[in-house]
Design a protein around this nucleic acid. Structure first.
Lengths: 113, 113
DNA sequence: GGCATATTCAACCATTTGGTTGACGGTTTG
DNA sequence: CAAACCGTCAACCAAATGGTTGAATATGCC
């Protein structure tokens, strides 16, 4: 493994970890709260979170006795860009794609195409 | 693992397998030729190819005594869509993205946009 | 101080992964 | 037919993965 992209993909290859990421999409969460919906030990979830953190997909910050987990979506970018090298995306102009995103992702009631 | 998305991500988590996919981006290849640049046994590459095939990322067709490997980029779509749930891609309009691709990825000397 | 809460550590276990080697089954060619 | 080539299978191995439990470490509260 070792390289960055491999680490990210490996982290994403586990459904529990993907579920955790989906949960964190809503809001930052404490480790205990992340663990709550799963029927596995807190230690197991703690390990999953460590893996997500070492892949850069989340960051953890301890405030008081609780450790808050925060999604870091930017870590997906490199892997996402790798994937865009394939399929319909293979000849993509990344600058044009960037411009596309800027207009497409503008605030809801902003522009009329 | 078991689910489709997990299988695809797991397949992508290995640098050898990603290298193979990159090679297949150029052209279809025989197993032996895929194995050539790597310094590991043919059997090992054969296993990697089986993993890529079971993830749906490639297909293999035997013609005569050689087995041809072909990239199947569509298998990346589901995983790619999953990733788009995060980060800057979360509010993307897939139809608009499709139209964008159609113009942006038009065959070199085919039609003038 | 003492107890409850939040999280990790350490040791352990079963299974999977990524690799090796050698034998084997098809296919092509001399 | 026999020899060479293509690829997989089977058995094995070391290391990584995903999980468990119980003890340990912080922190907060009465």
């Amino acid at each position: 493994m070792s390289d960055k992209v491999s680490t990210v993909f490996a982290a994403l290859a586990d459904p529990t970890r993907r579920a955790i990421l989906s949960m964190l999409l809503e809001d930052d969460m404490a480790v205990t709260d992340v663990a709550h919906p799963f029927q596995m030990s807190l230690a197991a979830i703690s390990k999953h979170l460590a893996i997500l953190a070492s892949a850069g997909l989340i960051t953890q910050e301890k405030r008081g006795r609780v450790k808050w987990c925060k999604l870091e979506p930017d870590a997906l970018r490199e892997a996402s860009i790798w994937m865009q090298g394939f399929g319909q995306f293979e000849r993509i102009d990344l600058d044009a794609f960037e411009r596309f995103l800027e207009t497409e992702l503008a605030p809801p009631a902003d522009q009329a195409p």
